Amino acid sequence: RKESAFKSMLKQAAPPIELDAVWEDIRERFVKEPAFEDITLESERKRIFKDFMHVLEHEC
C-alpha cells in the first residue's frame, strides 16, 4: 500500500527523523523518493507524517 511505503521511507530515513521534526523542514529530503511521489496530496503526506511521529513518540 502507498501509505505503508511512505511510512517505510520515513522510518528508513538517514539520518533518522528526530522527535521534534516538522514536516516542512524535512519534506525536501524525500521529494525525489517514489513513495513520496505516489502520495499526490500534500495533506495526505502530512497526515501520514503525523501518524508516523505519533508512533515514534510512543516507541521512546
Rank of each mutant, 00 (worst) to 15 (best):
F36W: 05
D25K: 04
F6L: 02
R1W: 14
F6N: 02
P34E: 11
P15W: 03
R29L: 07
E18P: 10
E33R: 08
A14H: 14
E44G: 03
R45S: 00
E18M: 15
L19E: 14
R29P: 02
M53S: 04
L41M: 09
K11V: 09
P15L: 04
F30K: 00
E28Q: 15
F49A: 00
L56P: 10
V31K: 13
P15N: 03
W23L: 00
L19G: 13
K46R: 13
I39A: 01
S8I: 13
V22K: 12
R29Y: 06
A35D: 03
V31W: 09
V55L: 14
S43N: 14
A13R: 02
E37R: 13
L56D: 08
K50V: 10
H54M: 13
I17M: 04
S4L: 15
D38P: 05
L19D: 10
A21W: 04
V31I: 07
I39R: 01
E24T: 07
K11P: 00
L56R: 12
R29F: 04
E57N: 06
A21K: 04
L10I: 04
L56Q: 09
F30D: 00
K7S: 09
E18D: 13
C60V: 07
P34A: 10
D38G: 13
Q12E: 07
K46V: 12
P34N: 13
R27N: 04
E37Q: 12
E3T: 05
S4H: 08
E18S: 14
K46S: 09
I39W: 01
S8N: 15
V55F: 06
F6H: 00
P15M: 05
V55G: 12
V55S: 14
K2L: 05
E59P: 10
F6G: 01
L19T: 13
M53W: 02
D51W: 03
H58K: 11
H58S: 13
R45H: 02
K7F: 15
E59T: 11
E57K: 13
K11D: 11
K46N: 08
I48T: 02
S43V: 08
E59A: 07
V31Q: 13
L19I: 12
E37N: 06
V55R: 10
F6S: 02
I17E: 02
E28I: 12
E28M: 14
R45A: 00
S8E: 13
D38E: 15
D20G: 15
A14N: 13
Q12T: 12
K50N: 12
T40E: 13
E24A: 07
P15A: 03
S43T: 07
M53Y: 03
L41T: 12
E59Y: 05
H58D: 14
E57M: 09
V55P: 12
H58V: 10
D38K: 11
R45F: 00
A35T: 05
R29E: 03
S8Q: 14
R45T: 02
H54D: 10
H58C: 14
P15Y: 02
K46A: 11
A5G: 12
F49E: 00
L10D: 02
V22S: 08
E3G: 03
V31Y: 07
R27F: 05
F30I: 02
E37H: 09
P16Y: 03
S43W: 05
W23Y: 05
V22N: 08
D20N: 07
L56T: 14
M9S: 00
R27A: 05
K11L: 09
R47W: 03
I48N: 03
F6W: 01
D38L: 14
L41K: 13
E33A: 05
D51H: 07
E28L: 11
F30W: 04
E24M: 05
C60M: 07
K32C: 14
C60K: 03
E44H: 04
H54A: 13
R27L: 02
F49Q: 00
R29S: 04
L10G: 01
I17Q: 00
P34I: 12
F30M: 03
E37A: 11
S4N: 12
T40D: 15
E18K: 12
L56H: 15
E33S: 12
E28W: 13
T40Q: 11
P15T: 08
